[in-house]
């Protein structure tokens, strides 16, 4: 009986470790930091590399489709420009730091759930520009003047940046994220 219990424990541990390692690899494979000082990361380049299988599995597990290859690029971040996690308990100011592409989109998704409530987005067609052509977007729970993305209540969230792709080069989101007031 004791031998049976030990055997079961070993096998169960092995299976659990195997599943966990597969899940961790799927979530982390192909994630590359985008050049620059900002915390954006992208899987776009990895879609055509040796990790393509795991990168596609990431999208499958999230219940969504990857951006159309060589048409759209995508980058995400879960932290602000200082590396602090994005959370609905704080407000953020997302500011463009350079020239913007012809078409771009910035959206908020609640972390860890493909079934999260409808996310909010801002894009090149709807965002109001400043006098100097830059874009400033507030991410907060409550409505803000100007461009505003609604963040989830007191939950961590992810920013998704999409833009027209230029070949297979990873896109570089020209946005900095500054944390404002936290409640």
């Amino acid at each position: 009986m004791r031998r049976f219990i030990w055997a079961t424990a070993y096998v169960a541990f092995g299976v659990a470790a195997g599943c966990f390692s597969a899940f961790a690899l799927i979530q982390s494979a192909g994630v590359e930091p985008v050049t620059g000082d900002e915390p954006w990361q992208s899987r776009t380049a990895a879609m055509a590399g040796p990790n393509a299988f795991y990168v596609r599995s990431h999208y499958l597990l999230e219940g969504r489709l990857p951006p159309a290859p060589s048409q759209l690029g995508e980058a995400t971040t879960e932290t602000d420009s200082k590396g602090r996690p994005l959370t609905g308990g704080c407000s953020y100011l997302i500011t463009s730091t350079g020239p913007l592409p012809r078409w771009w989109s910035l959206g908020i998704v609640g972390s860890g759930s493909a079934g999260a409530p409808l996310q909010t987005t801002a894009d090149s067609d709807t965002a109001v520009r400043e006098a100097d052509g830059s874009v400033r977007i507030s991410a907060a729970r409550d409505p803000q003047p100007g461009n505003w993305l609604k963040s989830p209540d007191r939950r961590s969230f992810t920013l998704i940046y999409s833009a027209l792709a230029t070949g297979t080069r990873t896109i570089d989101p020209p946005f900095a994220i500054t944390r404002g007031i936290c409640s």
């Binding site: 195997g18 599943c19 799927i26 299988f53 999208y59 499958l60």
Partner: peptide, 24 residues
């Protein structure tokens, strides 16, 4: 322990090959 490692490798492969596709 070796049995656990083999079980882990098989579970890893099965998870990676089938679970995401089935989920989507």
């Amino acid at each position: 322990f070796l049995v656990a490692v083999v079980a882990g490798v098989m579970a890893h492969s099965a998870f990676a090959l089938f679970v995401p596709g089935w989920w989507f």
